[in-house]
Design a protein around this nucleic acid. Sequence first.
DNA 1: TTAAAAAATGAATATATTTGCAAAACAAAT
DNA 2: ATTTGTTTTGCAAATATATTCATTTTTTAA
Lengths: 159, 159
Amino acid sequence: MQKTKRLLAIEKIITEENITSHEALQKKLKAKGINCTQATLSRNLRQIGAGRMPDSKGGYKYFLPENNVSSSLSIGKLQVLPVILDLVDAKGLLVIKTLPGNANSTAFYIDNKSRYEIAGTIAGDDTILVIPRDGITNHQVHMCLEIVLPGLHEQIKGK
Amino acid sequence: MQKTKRLLAIEKIITEENITSHEALQKKLKAKGINCTQATLSRNLRQIGAGRMPDSKGGYKYFLPENNVSSSLSIGKLQVLPVILDLVDAKGLLVIKTLPGNANSTAFYIDNKSRYEIAGTIAGDDTILVIPRDGITNHQVHMCLEIVLPGLHEQIKGK
DNA sequence: TTAAAAAATGAATATATTTGCAAAACAAAT
DNA sequence: ATTTGTTTTGCAAATATATTCATTTTTTAA
């Protein structure tokens, strides 16, 4: 999962540092041992939905759109992950099993990440149905969920 | 005021239509009788703080950052303008006179436009002090206020 | 008004970003 | 393991955007 790792690194870097060009981002990644071309970054930045705004210093700054809730409610990774018990594909959809009572909050969390790949979610008490958008492969949704919930697949595999 | 007119037109166009490139914007402006080069648009887009985000169709879209309040409170132009009575320069600052009791709401409105040129405002009952940021010329603030409150100078001149 | 200073503009150029295409890496199924 | 199909990637080229510089326009001050 070389790409996923890079996507995560990019998200982290552009939210934490002032990135003003693909080239600058490329260098930061290199420093972390992640090598790729500027062309790949162009594609990756699009994929994660990164935008660009003028900064006050006459340059430009790349940014990740705020995920409405995640920041203000600050649901951290460590609180979200342990409640997820299983993840299975079914009929082009995904079913996530959680600890009892945790489906809604987790689905809420996923929804608020506003990923393009996910059309929506429906949550019961301990089960979430994730509905991918048309044209999105099963595999893409898995990648997407891994981004929304880093470590997810690790987590599941261990159960 | 050729430039101000263009800036206003650009703001209007990119909020109302899907603009995906400088060239596209240039054509829309031309259709409105406003001619300029791509170079000028590059500079203008920076000035008004326009950003760029990936759209779902594989392209990009220019946008104007939301002015937190203006949209949700929807203080329209027509309600704001008539309460402003005068506008004078003083010691590098600007003094705005309003109808009694209208200074605070007007200042609030200006503040929430979050213009770079304006460091802040202080409002009494019928008077607002506008404090420009260091390095901003008096003229720049006027341009800026004209953008925040379209028709402002027209309005004042008529009194 | 007129002269001087500042700001805005276009043309050309430099730089940055995106994309087509072929090769490589990866995944799925046999 | 081997084949087949899909995704990812780099390279090179195309496109889009930013900037330099010279000129024109606009503002300021006298």
